[in-house]
């Protein structure tokens, strides 16, 4: 059974239905990416899975449990962490407090996890007492991912982690995503940077106007002509 099973999910805002019945699976240990152009419904899909918006229809099952009627804080407790678009750093809390917020649901020892985050992102360790709002965009993205790891999630939803970052930082972030998977977490990655996403993904789904139009393994999709034309910038 997949770790995350999405069936016929519909979601939107007000009168706008941005996600029109999509289905996807994420198996334990995989990196799965959801690619598509701006406004295709990628972020809305993640927001509906993590409970930020209530699905209009369909089913979301995580680790064998229906979660599509749960509130976000309850879903986090089941082991599903969502790093939202724009990173969601608390600007008025220090970097260290942001990391502690990541471990909010836990009551066991977190020191080892803090060390792991410092190891992944040494720059954060130098800035622990700074307010989150004073970090650069790249540092905020590191903090957002590090903070999500503090929850020890089984599944990590990442929304556009490469957005606004320099190519070098994008590289670092993608290496980190692979490192996270090696350590046992499962990743559902939403990206506009389809080239990078397909490179590290086991499987991928292409979303257009709120519907899944293509799916397959990462390498297969990156060879697909339609995908290359639409998302990889080839004529």
């Amino acid at each position: 059974m997949p770790l995350l099973e999405v069936r016929d999910l519909r979601a939107g805002y007000g009168a706008i239905i941005a996600v029109k019945g999509i289905s996807l699976d994420v198996n334990e240990g995989e990196i799965v990416t959801l690619i598509g152009s701006n406004g295709a419904g990628k972020s809305t899909t993640l927001r509906a899975i993590s409970g930020v918006i209530r699905p209009r229809g369909g089913q979301v099952t995580f680790a064998g449990q229906r979660i599509d009627r749960l509130q976000p804080h309850a879903i986090v407790r089941l082991g599903l962490s969502h790093v939202p678009e724009g990173r969601g750093i608390f600007h008025s809390l220090s970097v260290y407090e942001n990391l502690l917020m990541g471990a909010y649901t836990r009551d066991d020892a977190i020191q080892a996890d803090l060390e792991r985050v410092y190891h992944l992102f040494p720059r954060l360790k130098e800035r622990l007492d700074q307010p989150g709002g004073t970090l650069s965009g790249g540092e905020q993205q590191m903090l957002a991912i590090g903070r999500a790891l503090m929850a020890r999630p089984r599944l990590l939803l990442l929304d556009e982690p490469s957005m606004g970052l320099s190519p070098v930082l994008v590289e670092t972030i993608f290496e980190t995503i692979q490192a996270i998977r090696r350590e046992g977490a499962t990743v559902l990655l939403v990206e506009q940077n389809a080239l990078m996403a397909l490179e590290i993904a086991d499987r991928a789904y292409v979303i257009e106007s709120g519907e899944i139009t293509l799916s397959g393994t990462g390498p297969a999709l990156s060879r697909d002509d339609a995908v290359r034309r639409a998302y990889l910038g080839e004529a």
Binding site: V52, Q71, R77, G88, L93, M101, Y104, A151
Partner: peptide
């Protein structure tokens, strides 16, 4: 107290940390 400050700054993001807003 951290949860309160997080909710004050951004309730949605606080809920994504597991805070019951």
């Amino acid at each position: 107290g951290r949860a309160i400050r997080a909710v004050a700054e951004n309730p949605t993001n606080a809920s994504l940390m597991g805070v019951d807003v």
